[in-house]
Design a binder for these strands. Sequence first.
DNA 1: CCAGAGAGCGGAAACGTTTGCCGGTTTCAC
DNA 2: GTGAAACCGGCAAACGTTTCCGCTCTCTGG
Lengths: 369, 369
Amino acid sequence: MGGPRKNPNRLRAPSASIRDVAQRAGVSIATVSRTVNGISTVAPELAERVWNAIREVGYVPNTQARALVSGRSRLLGLVVSEITNPFFPELVQEFENIAVEQGYEVFIGSTNYDPLRTESLVRRMLQRSVDGVAIMTFGIEQELIQKLVDRAFPMVFVDSGPDMPNIRVLKVDYGEGIREAVQHLAALGHRNVAFISGPLHMRSAVSRRDAFLKSMAELGLTVPREHIVEGTHTMEGGIRATENLLRLSEMPTAIVCSNDMTAIGVLHGLQRTTHEVPDDVSVIGFDDIHLAQFVLPPLTTVQMSCKLLAAAAVQALRTGIEPGLPQSQQTEWPIPTHLVVRQSTSFPRGSLPALAKTRSTARPAAAKA
Amino acid sequence: MGGPRKNPNRLRAPSASIRDVAQRAGVSIATVSRTVNGISTVAPELAERVWNAIREVGYVPNTQARALVSGRSRLLGLVVSEITNPFFPELVQEFENIAVEQGYEVFIGSTNYDPLRTESLVRRMLQRSVDGVAIMTFGIEQELIQKLVDRAFPMVFVDSGPDMPNIRVLKVDYGEGIREAVQHLAALGHRNVAFISGPLHMRSAVSRRDAFLKSMAELGLTVPREHIVEGTHTMEGGIRATENLLRLSEMPTAIVCSNDMTAIGVLHGLQRTTHEVPDDVSVIGFDDIHLAQFVLPPLTTVQMSCKLLAAAAVQALRTGIEPGLPQSQQTEWPIPTHLVVRQSTSFPRGSLPALAKTRSTARPAAAKA
DNA sequence: CCAGAGAGCGGAAACGTTTGCCGGTTTCAC
DNA sequence: GTGAAACCGGCAAACGTTTCCGCTCTCTGG
């Protein structure tokens, strides 16, 4: 009978420990441990007895003790830039699902673009001894990263991490999806396409803009400088940028946005000034957040799959954490993007009026290069 | 010089331990521990020496070991219903800020309204031995809760927990804010006000609807049954509910919604059918999510402060965790709600046209009972 | 001058695991 | 029948803390 506990000042009655199980099953704690961890050198009928004992005493392994002795916490850090931006909760959700599936727990934190906050966040993660961390944001202090790299700490970046060994990077193929978007517009007859970028101090925002310019150039389409406006990746930014575009002498017939929130802002900005989408102006977003399906009109957008992103991130981290895994040498993980055509894009205003009537049935598919 | 570690198969080089500090400072590990934990029986100059040593060797206490021996993880569980619903990220953010401020870390999980998922989530939290959990959602299995109650496990519910001892409840005062909303509308001249509720299996949704009916009754205003429609607390639900209201012979001049996403859906539904807000119909939301300020028109809404909610939740949990704290007997924590007037409400269509012109300057403040 | 109290510090036990090592039992080929 | 090999399972040493207990001083009061 498990004797009385020695330490009287603990908070709550501790639950059954490995010793209780061992006693009940009539084996040593080592055998219980091996059984729980699925180590094959335990005889089947003994394992059976252990499992029964575990069920009977209601044993739950103590994570702290496990982590302490094994040096692994089975905890993954996930750093996002702001959790209140609709794209991130979806990512967090998927990341968590996948991590849990693989037996990990997730430690989430958002930086709010604040370097100090970021630093303290990473520090807190290390203090909780996460096994690795996925940095899905930008602007983290170089110095802090260097420290982690030196300790061979598993890290994953999105898009473009610092160019260091032992760092894995999820390479999002912006070009692919954005080319599809541009070609979709071109196929519809648009020549005059504007782009609202994200804040240009973000490398991902720059990548998206450059992908847009490249795709336009490929089709021999020029983009006047005033048709590239800098937004903020928020609805407000989209609204403001739209106001600027509306003031132009030659308004574009289509607007491509660096993310969906911007595009939704554009939708609002246009509706406010009684421009119809897509009849007067076509709008394309980027990300394919959940909301994109439910705005009016449903947003045509370039999908960057949260699921793929999350799955790649978890997988990449695991290759850094668990030595035996395949792909452990892979440092770049490609993430595809694709156009999803909904109802915010159509023929340019005034062109092909006959076809425009039947637009909803005659939706052209995205053109492939 | 700290001899070589015994266990060769750990992942990464362990960082400095309490022993390294002790050695460097020429004291025992007990003294280091006492210094770190601010126990006053350490002589000042010794403490000084210890702190120096800590800085020199870059010591960071090992959370796992701490938790193992002290029985406390300084980890709080936070269960929300769906992280992708814009209200929750804001709550999560605030909760995290406050928890971290008080030296806790947060273990977030979302149930997606799935009882199975909820159960496994709570189980995972217990396995990570959280010190307490805030359940900001509904539909959790009674049985599971009972188990936790039996273990005197600190828990906080929003709104209405099971009526059990040792459970703390954040009592949101829906009546207050909703009365302000209704009186604001009545003061503007509205008599004919509809309500779009949340899913009625949620007790909070029922509470909000009842608060609305009560406030209307207080003013002697009747609400025909078809002016109460059930939504889903999502944008889609708001759009659908609006479509239903528009089909009615007698359309309401104002619509109060059970949450902001619903109200935003209503905005879309009305714009789609060329009804102007607020000139044709006034709309009021609930929650005051960040987005509410940025839709067009900016949404008049009842604010339920995330910050207050989060602060109360953390504080209530702490009273259950740390024995010495004041307020430890308090089981109900009141959360006030208040109307925030923006631009989605105005005089009813057709009435007071002269005043309506100057509406933006003549905005009436919320009436108090 | 001495007894007793207290302050300040160190030794060591405990927390609940994982895992290296070793000893015992079986199996099988010769 | 014997030896080696394979297989299983137990012992005990870690992991890095907190905290109890007891020892040594330094005061203080008588």
